[in-house]
């Protein structure tokens, strides 16, 4: 069972992602509400996969990807983005994100991405 850390400042998104993940046989090992806490929890939990929001307080998703990649260059991170964030997603990929999703997305899409990385 793959372990997942959810990093998102929206409680609603954390809840939704968790539900989808648990339903599809992933184990959510942690949640973080901003990039800083996300990096911190990554270091503590070393999950198989991270889902990463982009726009967050304290430290945004791109900064968090860079720091996580410093902890583990092989970290697998899926960015959760929204329309209009093309530039930011590109930066995230350059920083080492494995893939990304664009809100709104369906359960199937989300799981497809997670299984592909």
């Amino acid at each position: 069972m793959k372990s997942v850390l959810i990093v998102d400042d929206a409680m609603f998104m954390r809840y939704t992602l968790r539900k989808i993940l648990e339903k599809n046989g992933f184990m959510v090992v942690g949640e973080a509400e901003n990039g800083l806490l996300g990096v911190q929890k990554y270091g503590e939990l070393l999950p198989d996969i991270v889902t990463m929001d982009i726009t967050m307080p304290e430290l945004n998703g791109i900064g968090a990807v860079q720091l996580i990649k410093q902890i583990n260059p092989r970290a697998k991170i899926v960015m959760i983005s929204a329309m209009g964030q093309e530039q930011l997603v590109r930066e995230a990929i350059l920083a080492g994100a494995s893939n990304f999703l664009v809100k709104p997305f369906s359960e199937e899409r989300f799981i497809e991405v997670l299984n592909s990385i």
Binding site: L36, L59, L67, L94
Partner: peptide, 19 residues
């Protein structure tokens, strides 16, 4: 990288105070 290494280090320092 769009964030310079200096910046990253700074953020890293913040990490501990943020907890």
């Amino acid at each position: 990288p769009s964030v310079s290494n200096n910046e990253v280090r700074e953020i890293g320092a913040n990490l501990h105070s943020g907890s």
